[in-house]
């Protein structure tokens, strides 16, 4: 009997996953330049006709019960890295079309001094195709994140956007736990969501799982999954 290829095995696994678990839609944005604003507007306008917003509590309810209570299917609008143009360009459109943004923030990018942000981005797999800010500030600042925090979801995309599995334990710790500490210090509370670069799921790396638990994250996003793991730490965020 012919052995299935890795492609076949993966396709089969994911087919079973989607067949046996509630599925939600998401759309992932990264560098949202001014030049593409009209395109984003068209995209979100079209989505708003067919889909509706998902906030953190609604997602948790869906994860817990498997049931969705709004008339339209939910759409998670994920905004990655913490680019300044996500605040300037995409956020007004997200709000105009009634969605909730899920901002996956690399806290080290936010903390980097403005003159060094472009170089930091280039060294941390943060795409810098557009260089549209003459003042050199390419990351959001904490004040902007605090504004977003009032209406949207802020979550961790690690501290410096590196492949966790390849790091020393001490650096892994910094990536997972220090990121949460950055949020606590600057937003006044911890965050519930976590996703790392390339998005391995909870359960794939026990050492990283332990750090996720210790940091108090509750929702782990990965390439094909959202997992509610239950915050296991005193650092856990209150339901918000």
């Amino acid at each position: 009997m012919k052995t299935p290829s890795p492609f076949d095995q993966r396709a089969s696994e994911l087919g079973q996953l989607f067949e046996s678990h509630p599925v939600i839609r998401a759309v992932n944005f990264h560098n949202t330049s001014h030049a593409q604003a009209a395109h984003y507007e068209h995209q979100l306008a079209e989505y708003s006709k067919r889909f509706t917003s998902v906030n953190q509590d609604e997602l948790v309810e869906f994860l817990t019960t498997g049931r969705w209570h709004k008339a339209k299917p939910g759409l998670i609008v994920s905004v990655f890295e913490g680019y300044r143009n996500s605040f300037d360009v995409l956020t007004p459109l997200i709000e105009k079309y009634g969605f909730v943004g899920w901002y996956w923030v690399i806290t080290g990018f936010i903390n980097t001094p403005i003159p060094e942000q472009s170089t930091y981005a280039e060294h941390h797999d943060i795409d810098m195709l557009t260089h549209e800010y003459p003042d050199g500030r390419y990351a959001m600042n904490w004040e902007e994140l605090r504004q977003l925090d009032k209406k949207h979801v802020i979550a961790s995309h690690t501290r410096s956007h590196t492949l966790l599995s390849k790091l020393d334990p001490a650096v892994q710790r910094q990536e997972v736990i220090s990121s949460q500490e950055d949020f606590k210090k600057n937003l006044g509370h911890t965050v519930r969501g976590f996703v790392s670069l390339t998005g391995p799921a909870y359960g794939e790396n026990p050492a990283i799982d332990t750090l996720i638990d210790e940091a108090g994250y509750d929702l782990v996003f990965s390439n094909f999954r959202i997992q509610r793991i239950g915050a296991k730490s005193r650092n856990s965020a209150p339901v918000k």
Partner: peptide, 25 residues
């Protein structure tokens, strides 16, 4: 990838209740 919103599907697992499969069904 860097300049447009990329749609995806995400399967939802509740590891807290431990009943993700039966409940999901």
């Amino acid at each position: 990838y860097s300049e447009e919103g990329v749609p995806v599907f995400l399967a939802c697992e509740d590891l807290v209740s431990g009943k993700n499969s039966p409940k999901a069904n």
